[in-house]
Design a protein around this nucleic acid. Structure first.
Lengths: 287, 287
DNA sequence: GCTCGGTGATACCTGGAAGGTATCACCGAG
DNA sequence: CTCGGTGATACCTTCCAGGTATCACCGAGC
């Protein structure tokens, strides 16, 4: 029943995502025929057909869709197990096995809360070492799932907390960051509608999992680039209040009245049972 | 990095649980030498030592403990993926792929709520078929995790809901079920202390994952056996209020004043995204 | 209609890994 | 000092994963 090898799962996921045996094989660094055979074997073993091969490509069956969903989670769990075991044994640490915890934080988020958290935790007795791992926009969930991180700072409503345990740390409003010279910068407050429909100032677009939302605004790769584009009067961006910390003289921050508040949580996989993690969470809730 | 094959993981878990290569190999249906080699290979590949082999057996290192924890979850996720894919494809259903949902319920729990739930859901348009899967005491969590079930009725505080999403359905008090002739049966109410310290009437013991808690009372395998033992005046048991449904004439139910209330939840894996499941949960919350 | 490009499947071969048996090396208990 | 019990090693066999060459199929062109 559990005759599903990691390798087969990896192969299937590649095909299910590419919907093309040739490209999937290339991505896996192998030839196409063994890949076809592996999938056939898997289908035979499971007793269901996962893909329909018709003219012009491949489509997923119901069972295939199910295996794609559940299988990605399972593969994440496996790589997480391997990674966490390696870390616990100090495999990537020349100083040998020590108590450490990897904390994922959005690269663009405020340093203030993070500093307070790290200081508070470092003061605890038997504090583990914390590796701070900067992550892309909304990448923290994936990092927790596949074991690159043990705990993360997440921002509702941008991150989804399903499957994780979490504690609320902080709530803040959002601001629009405008070029200082722009007429709208003179306002005391703005609404989302005010900043989303400006013809000469399109909203900046952040990538999410490598994909950019559609729209006229520029595609943003990092915070410095964004800051520059705003300073040049080319775009406007919406950020949590704490972004004020990195504003330039050429920027103006205006509070948004109707933007949803951003709630920062500390979150971790629900099954975690680590003392170091418990200590960090305790320190966080005491902030 | 994710070079951790399912087979290797299964092998390691067997050794980690048995702490003995010979017994683990027997359990896996293989000879001991290839098992030893497989574990060595795994340790070399991960770059950490998982077990310390000293005189008189085997012990887990820190990395080994981590892999035991995370690895069991990962193996569950894999078997769940395989099982759910098989089910979605109708592999074990001669009538072919159809929309079904497996609901795990504690075998001894009340039929009343279950009936109402199934009836309410069956009335929905496009209702999937529900397979009701009776489970042992507190086995529902495991069944959700390894894919034998898609959704479960759980009873707080007996079941842990960590890692699952859930909705509360019902709260009830607990009762002591006594032989009708026993002096205590005359009381209007009792406390936990009253029923746990009776010399001639030791508390019945249910198995949990095949293990029985220590105590003088008889080991119970099923509800009928328990009912008989109570009727014979040999034991007493504590149950949620709804157990009144199956009492015999020789039994007397007495409410417990200080027993924690039992809350029935409908629970499912947090990552589930099935329409049928959503419908069932909707029907459940409307009860 | 026929070819052509692109798809996945099949045939066949080969190297390596997984598993089995026999045996060793080690150590603690008598 | 042996003996029982442990895990490790040596060596062999089998089988499967992967590679190359090729086929079978189909839709789009000319």
């Amino acid at each position: 029943m559990d005759i599903l090898e990691t390798r087969e799962l990896r192969y299937f996921l590649a095909v299910a995502e590419e919907l093309h045996f040739g490209r999937a094989a290339e991505r896996l660094g192998m030839a196409q025929p063994p890949l076809s055979r592996a999938i056939q074997r898997l289908e035979r073993r499971l007793g269901v057909s996962l893909l329909t091969r018709n003219r012009r490509g491949v489509a997923l069956t119901g069972a295939g869709e199910m295996l794609l969903y559940e299988g990605s989670a399972a593969l994440d769990a496996i790589t997480a197990a391997a990674r966490r075991a390696r870390r616990a044994g100090g495999a990537d640490d020349p100083r040998g096995p020590r108590n450490r915890l990897v904390l994922a934080v959005k690269a663009a988020s405020s340093h203030e809360l993070l500093h307070k958290l790290l200081d508070a935790y470092a003061a605890e007795p038997d504090a583990a070492e914390i590796d701070v791992l900067p992550s892309g926009t909304c990448e923290q969930e994936e990092m927790l799932r596949d074991g690159r991180a043990d705990v993360a700072l997440m921002h509702k409503p941008f991150n989804s907390l399903t499957g994780f345990d979490s504690e609320e740390l902080m709530t803040e409003g959002q601001i629009a960051i405008l070029p200082a010279g722009h007429p709208l910068a003179a306002h005391k407050t703005l609404s989302l509608a005010d900043v989303s429909g400006i013809p000469d100032l399109p909203l900046a677009r952040w990538s999410r999992n490598g994909v950019y939302p559609p729209g006229p605004g520029p595609e943003i790769h990092d915070q410095t680039q964004l800051a520059q584009l705003i300073a040049l009067g080319r775009t406007v961006a919406v950020f949590p209040d704490s972004a004020r910390a990195w504003l330039w003289a050429e920027h103006t921050a205006v509070p948004l009245t109707d933007a949803p508040p951003v709630v920062t949580h500390i979150a971790w996989p629900a099954h975690s049972r680590s003392l170091a993690l418990a200590g960090l969470v305790r320190a966080a809730t005491r902030l």
